[in-house]
Nucleic acid binder design. Structure first.
Length: 864
RNA sequence: GCCGGGGUGGCGAAACUGGCAGACGCAGCGGACUUAAAAUCCGCGGCCUCCCAAAGAGGCGUGUGGGUUCGAUUCCCGCCCCCGGCACCA
């Protein structure tokens, strides 16, 4: 039995390495940085996790991406902050409590414990000292503190509003949380409710949030576009159409119809240039004037029934499909302030109450919606824009609206102007005459943050009969979330059922008062957690501006694209608030954003309910964490969606074992090798060239392109080459004969080249497979671990080849390859190419018209 | 409808600035080692044609039809399909 010989070369046993090095990193506190102004910083962050219980490989992919970036930057001399935390408040824990009776606090911390273990078993290099959970008073105190600062500045305010209410989750949803008219979480159709709500005035920053997008050059175009659409800026004008003599309507002209009684209808339009074609005015069913007009209509009951029908359509039918354009005449007329003509006022089901002024001027000739409406109800159509080089079409000939710009016609003094010029001039004219003004309209709305739920940050406000709404003074923060023991899932806010919480004293008069019983949307928590990481244990401040200045902004941020709007726009908003409070001095929180793709199993997103989750722990048990890490990085670029494959994981394990054998094979011999000498033979030079070319490729792929898959490919190529080199130089590849560890080689040069190659390989594989790399690094005789090691340096001269193979094309077809010295001149390359037998055969009997030499790349011969 | 991103072997993918399409890996096939298997090591591999076969040679090939160019997966124009976002936003 030859067992002893077989085990001369140590077997790759990843599970032992995982344990050993994870322990070592924890013992030496290897990843806990402190501020160091002498070194460049790198703040690497992955979106923190909701502690659902178990992380699957889809979640874990994101953490590995960040870890590769963090570990690489550390070796490249950066002071790296790579923290992790828990988005620990939220509905699922509370819903589970209603079902199972387990208190959210208990389940949440239990889940955190388990998931933290999973991440540690993956060897992610987190600064665990800075770990935070948003459900702790140490964290949410600062949510409350910030809320009060916003309240003081008018950025947090309370108003009664129609809100999106989820009848299943029993809570209000922000506009961003309503997807196709349904709750983003449970999919139930959303209903409308009127409630007193707290809002954050994100619209105050609408223009800044839009303009800031232009500075985000390292964000995916997709996300920038989604945010632009979401903010939805449009330039236009507000114009007032006075109502024609009506006893109900008073003389006061209100700019926004804050009162139900006004003497004019204000519309918002982006096409004031078409106002001579405005032949009627449309009101949203929600418009305040609608109810005012109702009483005066011929049949008020029928009128109101119509309007009610339109309002019901709004949320449900309108979302699900095309709703016929319908309207009802109010019996009233308004004056087109440009033509002076009287136009009828209708209520239309397709006009939105919450956008603009809730009223539009209808220009059927130049707006498709108005066109359809006019045709349905036989309202007049008037063409006021024509093409620049032809006559304008007649209204009768139109089959659809013409919405593009052109030249103004049928518009009195404005005839002949191009549309854009007309818009500017007519807006100015409206302003001069006091009937309107230019304005910018946003689609973005203020952020309603009140939630009628338990498991969230209490809103730190108090209601006093005498003094009204009062903020809780800073020295009484945090307003602690009381321990609710019974979760029924019925009624409004669970906190309203805790008298000792509700009943308090007014901070101003000391008299009896009631606390706000709603909690904050959990997106508040996640809007600034990256700031807190810079100073996670600060008990006196949300974070120190000095520490924040050192670490922020986040240099590299990665997470799922599903947060492209919600989290990423709220965080940009909060950053501006902190800036205006003097806490930070940058505008944008995340310099670079990477949106990682999901991991699918059987073509579907992994989820517990579908029963198709891949548990990283099971994979680690079988193949070790390094193989899992490497596979997930190798399978595709980080942005791509990928299908999970057990076979692929096994392939990555094989590669690591191959690296292990290679290094082990040479380790004993290369210990004696010195620096690489100048006079190498061809094989040695080629191996060295491959080493340095790989350094270049891997460095660029990780740092510049985040193409982590091709970085791994390059390492595989290097390993393949080194196996062949081993075979050539010492006979027999590593692993071919298990006991064939090299003890010496014929040439010292060989050992020096191999040592350089193998060390570079171990260093470069370490971000992907840190446990194995640490062990091999130690095995190669290095002390102090990889945390202290430097990334290999690229030597461009060593990477350059002495000879290169140049393909030769004849009339665009590849016909030959010639080998030339890499520094050969253009003439030499041309001569060599034209002398090649295969080339001669193809040009025989033909005329060479042209020879193009692309230096170092290719020769192209044109013949006829 | 508008905006953004895509379409490359059996599969995941690569091709950096217009220059050898398919690197690297998975699955597959062949060889070495072994009594045998596993593991390991080495090799083959887009499609088609010529050839008994091999070697070799040639043709076609990056969704599709054009264009620019000595040369196009890459640039331009038209079309088809897929994914994501927004969607009666005046």
């Amino acid at each position: 039995m030859a067992w002893s010989i077989i085990f001369d070369v140590a077997e790759y046993r990843p599970q032992e390495l995982d344990r050993k090095w994870q322990q070592r990193w924890a013992d030496t506190r290897a990843f806990e940085p402190t501020e160091d102004p002498t070194r460049p910083k790198f703040y690497c962050l992955e979106m923190f996790a909701y502690p659902s219980g178990h992380a699957h490989v889809g979640h874990v992919r994101n953490y590995i991406i960040g870890d590769v970036m963090a570990r690489t930057r550390r070796m490249r001399g950066f002071n790296v902050l790579h923290p992790f935390g828990w988005d620990a408040f939220g509905l699922p824990a509370e819903n589970a409590a209603i079902k199972s009776g387990i208190h959210p606090e208990v389940s949440t911390f239990g889940n955190i414990e388990h998931m933290k273990g999973q991440l540690k078993r993956l060897g992610i290099s987190y600064a665990w000292d800075r770990e935070l959970a948003t459900c702790t008073p140490e964290y949410y105190k600062w949510n409350q503190w910030l809320f009060i600062r916003m309240y003081e500045r008018g950025l947090a305010y309370r108003r009664r509003s129609t809100v999106n209410w989820c009848p299943v989750d029993l809570t209000v949803l922000a506009n961003e949380q309503v997807v196709d008219g349904a709750c983003w979480r449970c999919g139930t159709a959303v209903v409308q409710r009127d409630l007193e709500q707290w809002f954050l005035k994100i619209t105050h920053y609408a223009d800044q949030l839009l303009q800031g997008l232009d500075t985000l050059t390292k964000w995916p175009e997709k996300v920038l576009t989604m945010q632009r659409n979401w903010i939805g800026r449009s330039e236009g004008a507000r114009v007032r159409f006075p109502l024609v003599g009506d006893p109900v309507v008073g003389p006061n002209v209100g700019p926004n119809f804050s009162s139900a009684i006004a003497a004019a209808i204000e519309v918002f339009t982006t096409r004031i240039d078409t106002i001579y074609g405005a032949t009627f005015v449309l009101l949203a069913p929600e418009h305040p004037l609608v109810e005012t007009f109702a009483a005066g209509t011929a049949d008020p009951k029928a009128f109101r029934a119509q309007v009610t029908k339109f309002r019901m359509q709004d949320r449900t039918a309108r979302m699900s499909g095309d709703v016929e354009k319908e309207g009802v005449f109010t019996g009233h007329y308004a004056v087109n302030p440009f033509t002076g003509g009287q136009v009828p006022v209708w209520v239309a089901n397709f006009v939105l109450g919450e956008y603009g002024t809730g009223a539009v001027m209808a220009v059927p000739a130049h707006d498709q919606r108005d066109f359809e409406f006019a045709r349905t109800y036989a309202l007049p159509i008037r063409v006021v824009v024509g093409p620049a080089d032809a006559d304008a079409p007649s209204a009768e000939s139109l089959t659809e609206a013409v919405s593009n710009d052109g030249v103004i016609v049928n518009s009195g003094p404005w005839d002949g102007l191009p549309s854009d010029e007309a818009r500017t001039k007519m807006t100015a004219d409206a302003r001069t005459r006091g009937i309107g003004e230019g304005t910018v309209q946003f689609r973005l709305k203020d952020w309603g943050i009140s939630r009628q739920r338990y498991w969230g940050t209490p809103i730190p406000m108090v209601y006093c009969d005498k003094d009204g709404v009062q903020a809780v003074p800073d020295d009484q923060l945090p307003v602690l979330l009381p321990k609710v023991t019974e979760f029924t899932g019925r009624g409004d806010s669970p906190l309203a059922q805790v008298p000792e919480f509700v009943n308090t004293t007014c901070p101003r008069c000391g008299g009896p008062a009631r606390r706000e019983t709603d909690t904050m949307d959990t997106f508040v928590d996640s809007s600034w957690y990256f700031d807190r990481f810079t100073d996670a244990t600060n008990a006196l401040q949300a974070f120190s501006p000095v520490k924040a200045k050192y670490w922020l902004p986040v240099d590299f941020y990665s997470g799922g694209v599903e947060h492209a709007i919600l989290h990423l726009i709220y965080s940009r908003f909060f950053t501006r608030v902190f800036r205006d409070l003097g806490m930070v001095d940058h505008d944008e929180p995340f310099t670079q954003l990477l949106t990682q793709g999901m991991v699918l199993k059987d073509g579907k997103v992994m989820s517990k309910s579908k029963g198709n989750v891949v548990d990283p722990d099971q994979m680690i048990q079988k193949y070790g964490s390094d193989a899992l890490r490497l596979y997930v990085m190798f399978v595709a670029p980080p942005e791509n969606e990928v299908e999970w494959s057990d076979a692929g994981l096994e392939g990555s394990f094989r590669f690591l074992a191959r690296v292990w054998r290679l290094v082990d094979h040479w380790a004993a011999a290369v210990g004696e090798a010195g620096p690489v000498p100048a006079d190498l033979n061809d094989a040695e030079r080629a191996a060295r060239r491959k080493t340095h070319d790989t350094i270049r490729r891997v460095t660029m792929d990780i740092e510049e392109r985040q193409h982590l898959n091709t970085a791994v490919s390059a390492l595989m190529e290097l390993v393949n080459d080194l196996y062949a080199f081993s075979d050539q130089t010492v006979g027999g590849s590593p692993g071919q004969h298990a006991a064939s560890a090299v003890t010496t080689a014929e040439r010292l040069e060989t050992l020096a080249v191999v040592r350089e190659a193998v060390e570079a390989l171990v260093l470069m594989v370490s971000p992907f497979a840190p446990h194995m790399a640490e062990e091999l690094w130690e095995h190669l005789g290095h002390q102090g671990g990889l945390t202290a090691a430097a990334w290999p340096a690229h030597d461009a001269a060593a990477a350059r080849a002495a000879e290169i193979v140049v393909p030769v094309q004849i009339n665009g077809k590849l016909r030959a390859r010639v080998t030339v010295p890499s520094e050969a001149s253009e003439d030499e390359v041309r001569a060599k190419a034209l002398a090649d037998p295969a080339v001669l055969a193809h040009i025989a009997g033909k005329t060479v018209k042209k020879v193009i030499v692309a230096q170092g790349k290719l020769v192209s011969v044109v013949v006829s």
